[in-house]
Every structure is written in C-alpha cells, then in structure tokens.
Design a protein around this nucleic acid. Sequence first.
DNA 1: CTGAAAGCGCTAACAT
DNA 2: ATGTTAGCGCTTTCAG
Lengths: 341, 341
Amino acid sequence: MKRVTIYDVAKLANVSPTTVSRALHDHPAISEGTKQRVRAACEQLAYVPDIVARGLSGQKTHTIGVIVTDISDPYLSALCAVMERHCSEHGYRMLLSNTLHDPQYELEAVGRMLSQQVDGLLISAHSPQSQARHRALIGDLPCVYLGNNHTADCSYVEVDNERGAYEAAQYLYHLGHRRIAFVGGRADSRTLELRLKGYRRSLLSHGLPLREIVGSDHVEDLCTWCYQQTLDELRSGDGFDAVIAYTDRIAMSIVDAAEASGLRVPEDFSLIGFDDIVFGQLRHVRLTSVSQSYFRTGQLAVERLLAQIDGSCSRTADIIEPELMIRDTCRRIERKERSSL
Amino acid sequence: MKRVTIYDVAKLANVSPTTVSRALHDHPAISEGTKQRVRAACEQLAYVPDIVARGLSGQKTHTIGVIVTDISDPYLSALCAVMERHCSEHGYRMLLSNTLHDPQYELEAVGRMLSQQVDGLLISAHSPQSQARHRALIGDLPCVYLGNNHTADCSYVEVDNERGAYEAAQYLYHLGHRRIAFVGGRADSRTLELRLKGYRRSLLSHGLPLREIVGSDHVEDLCTWCYQQTLDELRSGDGFDAVIAYTDRIAMSIVDAAEASGLRVPEDFSLIGFDDIVFGQLRHVRLTSVSQSYFRTGQLAVERLLAQIDGSCSRTADIIEPELMIRDTCRRIERKERSSL
DNA sequence: CTGAAAGCGCTAACAT
DNA sequence: ATGTTAGCGCTTTCAG
C-alpha cells in the first residue's frame, strides 16, 4: 500500500501538483471550483499531507522541541501540558525530551532536536553550566528558557524566586518563628541559589541564624536525602521550628521527618513549600506554598517562542511574580519576648 | 548563516556526497582513511545531519508518537518518562500529544502524528469508542495501546485491572469490611468497567451489596466530584466503612471526604487506591494501593512497538499483573458475628 | 572502494 | 487562474 501524494490527487482532480498544493493552502488565486474538486479528490484518496516533506521543502517543520529535567515532576508535567496545548493551538507539534538532570543527556538532547530541525526550543536546563555547554550549538535558533537555570544572553520566562523565598521567610518571621531552616535543592542550580538568597535576605535582616540543608549535585534521591538530613538535625536536639522547602515534594518529606521526630505540623512545626502542586492543595495536606503559575509560565513561554520564530521579536525576559498560597501548614507562635511585631 | 550539508562536507573532504553519507553510516565499503577525513570535515564544519531530509529519503523518521489522556496525571507522566528513555536509547525521538480526555482531540492528534510520518504510535486512549474512531486512520502503522481502552484487534500492554480490583476487594473483605464502596472513574472507560467487574465479582461472591459512585463522561473535575459525592453519601447516615478508589488521586480526595465527615483513616475507614503513585508512598500518606508498574509497562510497550517497526513481530498482547501494595490506610475490623474467616 | 544521478513529497519562483 | 521546473538534504541503485 503506497503513500498517496499530491501527484495522485492531482491526477484524479485533473490539475497540476502545484494547484493541489495551493488549493490545500487556500491560496487566493485558485478558483473555488478547483478547490472543491481538489478537496474531493483528497477525500476520496484519503490523502494525508506529509509534514516531513513540507518541512524539507519550506524551511519550517512546525515542530518545537521541549527539553525538561523531569517530566514526572508535577510542576513540570503540568507545565508541559500547558505548553503542548498552546503549541498545538498554533499548529505546532511538540517533541519531548527528559534529561533526568543529566547535563550530558541535556547536551545530546539539544543536538537531537537540532538535527530534527525543530523551529524552536523550550528548555528547562539543569544548571547555568549545562546551559552554557549547549548554548553555542543552538546558535540563533529561537529558544526560550524555562526557569532560572540560564545565563544572561538568552530569552527566558522565570519566576522571581528570590522574592518568593524572601516572602516565605518574612511570613514565617511575622508568625513568630525565629529558627527557620531552608531544606532541599541541588547545589548547582541557580533556582536554588536565588531561593537561598531570598531566604538569607530575610533572616539576615532580622539577625537570625541561617540553617541550610542543601544536597550536592550527585545526591540520587533528593527527597529521601532531605528526609534523613532533617530527621537527624531535628533529633540532634538543637533543631528548628519552621522550614522553607525547596519544593512541595520535599516539603512532604519534611512533614514525614517532623512527625517521625515527634513534632506535629503545624502545631509544633511550620512548613512552606514551592510550586503549589495539586497534591499539596488536597484538604488532607493543605500545604502552604509559594506558587509559580505553570499556566502563565507555559503560555508566555510558548508565545514568546512563536514570536521569535515568526521574527516579530528577538530576545525577551519575563519575570512571573510568585504568590504565597497560605493554607494550613504554618501557625502563629506566641512569643514571650515580643520583639517588635 | 546557511545550513551545512553533506555537500559542504564532501567538498572539504574531497569526496562525493555519497561517500560522506556512507562514511557517516559506517558503511563497510568505505576505507578507514576516507572515513577519518569525512569525520574530520564534519567536525570542522560543525555538520549536523538533517533527520527530516533523511526521513524523506529513507522511509523512516525515527520518531514515535505518544498520545496520552493527561500528561499531568502522575501515573502517565511517570510512564512517559520511562518510554522517552527507552525510545531515545533506541535512537527514537518522541512526539507528545495530550488529549485531556477529549475524543475529538485524540482523533486529530492521531491525524497529526500520521502526517508527521511517525514510525509508530503509543496511545493511551480515552475509551474503546474513541479508539474505534481512529483505528482506520492508523491502518497498519505499528501501534501499541497503553491500558485497557481499546478493542480487540490491536496490540496492547495492559494491566489486569479486573484482578487488581478483585484482590483489593478481597483484601478488604478479609480485613472484616462488609460495606465496601467503589468510587471514581468515567463511565465510558473500559479500565473502569474492568475494575468494577473485579470489585463486583468479589462482593457478589460474599453476598455483599454493591455501592458504586461513578462519574458520567462529562464531569469536569472528577476528584472534586468524587469528594462531594462521597461526603454526601457518608453524611446521609447509611454510609460505608471502606472504599476502593479508581485512582490514588481520588483516594486522597476520599481521605478528605472521610475526615470532613468525622471519620479517621484507617481507624474508622479503610481505603485502597490504584496506581501506586509516588505521593501515596510518602510516610505522611502511606496509601495502600494497587500498583501497575509503569516501569514495566513503559518498557514493554516501547519494546513491542520497536519490534513491530523493524518487522520482527506483528500483534502482541501483554498483561501486566497488578500488585497490592499494603501500607497504612486499611485496618482490620473485629467482627462480633464472625461469619467464616 | 567511490561517484553520478535519480528520486522521497512538497513548495515556490517563474512562466503562461 | 493554473502549470513547469527546480530544488530542500539525504539515500540509494547502478556504474565505474
């Protein structure tokens, strides 16, 4: 069973292949009558246009490449869902690659996307270093980075993570907490760096001591590692009564660690996560979290990329403001030595 | 900045394009010396092969299309991650489409994949009906269905859902529960149908009454709907003391509903989910769940598909056995009128 | 061992 | 309004 091509359609409709092509693209210079005939012939032969050939001939493949660190991360999978929708609404297909935080794989994925002739790239990079490694490969192909893991000379849509963490810490401070730790993240991530920066800015401004539990880049299972570290710290006596977790997923591990060491959340222990994933919103959990709207991020990223592709703009930088979603994992502490507030 | 083609490489290496092509494919009839020269030239020009042209010329695009109902579902996103890995290990790229349970979109997605000339398709269909609608389009293109939503004349990898539900119900029965409900799912899904079948087989064999709370296909947010329905039922007095939920996600909503009506899990209320997602495994939740290994499913699906593509086999049907992961959301009930066990 | 030439299916000048 | 022709970048007979 051979492929049906425009030549077959042309023959049946008694016109030239060009006319078929034009009719299919609704070219104005084709009479309504021929268009009808061509469409009928297509129908009859069950003709399906070959996008690959179209891509070779024209210069566009109408395919965009998406490279993420972990598609099974709830935030990223939600983001992908949004991006896929927007792409397909604009007639683009989406090629997906999952790096699992492996910089080498990320580099190869970029290469594969290029050789696939994607019209543009949407990348959630592992770290600024990994991004630097593939930067040259990409050249001037339209590309928008998702999140903070990139260097300055590119387009991106990112959340103001410094501010998100700062506000989370401020919130805990005003609730009366004075022993606030930051837990989670991989050392080479710029997102982590920024969140730490915000956390430090808040604590330092109140003269509070910093407590940072951060994984090195080769920790395999970050959640388990954070659970263990936190548990150890809490048991060593000299603990803390509030935690800002790098992600909601880690926050949930922290709940486990707190409870395992005999502390209840939020009665004895306050907790804030990042990402505002759907599982944190369950009544059963009600995790207070810094939200970075995946909806807005995904939409904006695709929009910016498509604008770059059709040449209507070059570099863009968008900062999404985070929002603290206050739920039930933080509690006000009555302080005897009322300092200021 | 024009594209670098094999012609450029050929010129630089002082050979013909044919030789370049062959050298790149490690053709045996090319001398080692020329291969070296060609490789050097490629390097120097930063040549990237054009997969699109290769696809047009040969007949393979080395691209497989994946169509899922919801990439932000934890089970499916984990499955996609596994499949992406396996595909790329075998030199295939993965085109992703997300139907959000819309049969019309599913149909269009199949069309887009076809016109993209994918070498094969991996589909998690919305329902057997929706699958039937696109079946003809696909024709004899290699295709493997994920899960139970398909008719008989195709390849698939599915979990024995009937058995999974049966065993979940048996487990609850042996724990002493006599008022066991099944909650969740969409009416047109065959997966639901099978789970219900297993649930019924168990309950009927013990002479217990059936309690089924199932959404119609146009319920928007299934979780919220299930929460509300369950809450109503529980409050109406004549409730139940155990639930098998259609998914873990729904199970979590049921926890909320139970707690909202004053019942504690597992003290007053036992609960089993489906999927064994990572969030259910957290110590904080410890949800008992029927596991359908996404790892095994994803791996097998890709393997079967690739075997079909390279022609080494035609139709396959694989059944994955489910496994009841017993955690902490079910509890033994002491019965006064000890019936049998 | 290497090269020339003919497509793969489609589009886009450039005619008519 | 429609047709002719020449590629897009690569592979693949068929000849040297």
